[in-house]
Design a protein around this nucleic acid. Sequence first.
DNA 1: ACAAAAGTGTTACACGTACACCCATGA
DNA 2: TCATGGGTGTACGTGTAACACTTTTGT
Lengths: 242, 242
Amino acid sequence: MMQVNTSSDLQEERQRLDAFFRFGISVDCVVFGYDGENLQVLLIERGAEPYKGFEAIPGDLVSLNEDIDQATKRVLNDLTGLPDIYLEQLSTFGAVERHPMGRVVTVVYYALLDKNLYNPHPASWASEAYWKNLDEIGEMAFDHRQILEAAVQHLHHKVQHQPIGFELLPEEFTLAQLQHLYETILNTSFDKGNFRKKMLSMNVLIPLDKMQKEVRHRPARLYRFDQQRYEQLVQKGYLFEL
Amino acid sequence: MMQVNTSSDLQEERQRLDAFFRFGISVDCVVFGYDGENLQVLLIERGAEPYKGFEAIPGDLVSLNEDIDQATKRVLNDLTGLPDIYLEQLSTFGAVERHPMGRVVTVVYYALLDKNLYNPHPASWASEAYWKNLDEIGEMAFDHRQILEAAVQHLHHKVQHQPIGFELLPEEFTLAQLQHLYETILNTSFDKGNFRKKMLSMNVLIPLDKMQKEVRHRPARLYRFDQQRYEQLVQKGYLFEL
DNA sequence: ACAAAAGTGTTACACGTACACCCATGA
DNA sequence: TCATGGGTGTACGTGTAACACTTTTGT
């Protein structure tokens, strides 16, 4: 069995390679939300250079003693006040000229959120923090436009293979809400009866003894997503489709 | 319209942030191959510290003036002599302690290759370069074991949704070869007739007027993958499945 | 003639699609 | 009682799974 080297040897080698250790690493957090009508993204307005005043995806430089996974939660909380939420890694952007202040490679994460749960508040160097409809977004800082497009593409793909739609809805929702969400994300329309059959046949929805109230038509039944059951099914090799 | 700041302002700001710019970035290239029997990975033996003598995924530090996408090709060629091949980004590993020589975040790429096309030759600080069966791989340098497992998982998933299997085979192949490859990757078995029907019904295989030779049974027809046709289908929203 | 693998055909069943229809509520 | 969306049922065609069968080669 081989031995990992002593630390003095490593320091020497490290000095030889010093010119390689001048990168900055940042994380960017694309957080999707849904207001019942439109798909939205959490944005900040930059209150610091570079790109001061531009809209941007919440993100910041990572410290030397910080895991990048953990940095996402810290950064998101610092800039927008959102609490610890689960963020999944998407991809990494590392073009040479993407950051005017030096060589910064950014690791992009994304999350889905019921936007009614938390209200973003700008802090740190973010001068604003708000939700914005996906189709109303214009110019952005850095290559964030490109990053956002990659995230949307990923969402399109993912929503068809994993039951992530539920994360965007309140805990209790109707099938019509779910259907409308899917139609919005995928920009298509589904047959009501078939959508309903499909969703129910997957056995990951718990029907509640609650109904909608104060609607001027027949009230719809409310459902909850059954996370436990879903995980059981995944373990048995079950694949969510459409 | 906002103005990006002058370069002297940026330099000042950059100095304030100097402690953040001490990361190293590396790329690691997981290259899968297939010898007609087993799924394999291209490995090197490290001829330099740290982890000298350990098996590793080909990878190296990225230079400050080098795009990370381009670095993959350079690194792979430097270490194993393989030419420019298309590598796709997989994910990024950034735990604090993953590299004993400093803070190194690594971006992992992967590729599929007909391993009969090129022979790896070790160069630079790689003391060996060779193909190894996936199920014979033991301890590895750094967190490369973990990286490899992520790549295999990704391959499992991807092969079911995109026709990437063809990249592992010679340009001309039989349906039985294709089936065996899929069975190997997914570790299952398919019904011959049904597999054949499914593959042919997708219209991305071009039947050739060539047959296998020198086999002691009925020779099989050879096929080629129709890349053009596939891209047409993708544009029409067609999705490859199973 | 036989072994071995290529290649085809048949059938039963599950599933997706399209569409029609009934139900409960507020105004 | 009407408009509105919730919710259900059915009929048809396509796709999948299981399995048996025929074909072509080398020995």
